Simulated scan of single mutants.
Amino acid sequence: MSIELNHTIVWSSDRDATATFLTEILGLPEAPVYGPFRVVQVAGVSLDVGQATGEVHPQHYAFLVGDREFDEIFGRIRDQGLTWWADPMRTRRGEINHHDGGRGVYWESPDRHILEIITVPYGGAAATT
């Protein structure tokens, strides 16, 4: 059997608001409840959004998307008035990067998780969507 990432937990200060933020910005279906989590399904991997009992420590989540999806997601980022950067250190505000001949941007979730969309994986070929 091959090894695949099945799910990861995204801790949040507000489980429902975070799940809604993710599904709306990424253009995904509403996240159903599964036990204590809201499950955001992303191409075979689920982001299980859970309610943190203490401080939320920001993590980084990157999504490989096609050009059409990039345009749609980036449009929602702009429409919501979110700040975006071309780099994870957040020094190139309002820019898009073009690494490996693709496009990429970073923005923050309400709990300051660093979210990223890229059209070409690091050192790889363009997405097929």
Rank of each mutant, 00 (worst) to 15 (best):
T23G: 03
V65C: 05
V49M: 13
S2G: 14
V105D: 05
A19H: 00
L115G: 03
G94I: 03
G54M: 09
A86R: 00
Y34Q: 15
A31R: 10
P110M: 09
H99W: 10
G50H: 12
D100W: 13
W85D: 06
I9V: 15
P121D: 04
H98G: 06
W85R: 06
A52E: 07
V39N: 14
I25N: 04
Y122E: 06
G94K: 08
E24K: 12
H7G: 08
T23Y: 04
R38P: 10
P121E: 11
V42I: 15
R78T: 14
A126V: 09
G66D: 01
P110T: 06
E95S: 05
A17N: 01
D87N: 07
E24I: 04
T18C: 07
A127P: 05
I77V: 15
E24L: 13
Q41K: 15
P58T: 11
P36W: 11
S46W: 09
D16W: 02
S109E: 03
I96S: 04
E72S: 13
I3H: 13
E4A: 14
F63C: 04
R112Q: 14
A127G: 01
L5F: 11
G101F: 04
G27Q: 10
Y61C: 06
V45M: 14
H113M: 10
D67L: 13
W84Y: 15
A86E: 00
V105G: 00
Q41P: 05
G54V: 04
D111F: 11
T18I: 02
S12E: 03
E24T: 13
A17Y: 01
L47W: 12
F37Q: 09
I73Y: 02
S13P: 12
Q80A: 15
T53P: 06
R76A: 03
F21E: 02
G101L: 05
V56F: 10
S109G: 08
L26F: 13
I114Y: 04
D111S: 06
E24W: 07
I118D: 05
P110R: 08
V56A: 11
P88L: 07
T128I: 05
V65A: 03
T83P: 05
W84P: 03
A125G: 05
T53W: 07
T8G: 08
V33H: 12
N6W: 03
D100C: 06
H99S: 01
Q80T: 15
T53Y: 06
D16T: 11
V10A: 13
E95P: 02
A86H: 00
G123H: 09
R103I: 03
T53N: 11
G66W: 00
A31L: 09
Y34V: 15
T128P: 02
G54W: 12
L64S: 08
F21C: 02
I117W: 02
T20D: 06
L82T: 06
T8D: 07
Y61E: 02
Y61V: 15
E95V: 00
I117A: 05
G66F: 01
W107V: 01
V42H: 01
P29R: 10
M89P: 02
D111A: 09
E95L: 09
G81F: 12
R78C: 11
G35E: 15
F70M: 08
D111P: 05
R15T: 10
G50Q: 12
D16M: 01
H60D: 05
L26R: 02
S12Q: 06
G50K: 11
T8F: 14
H7W: 06
Y106V: 01
V49E: 14
S46V: 02
E55V: 14
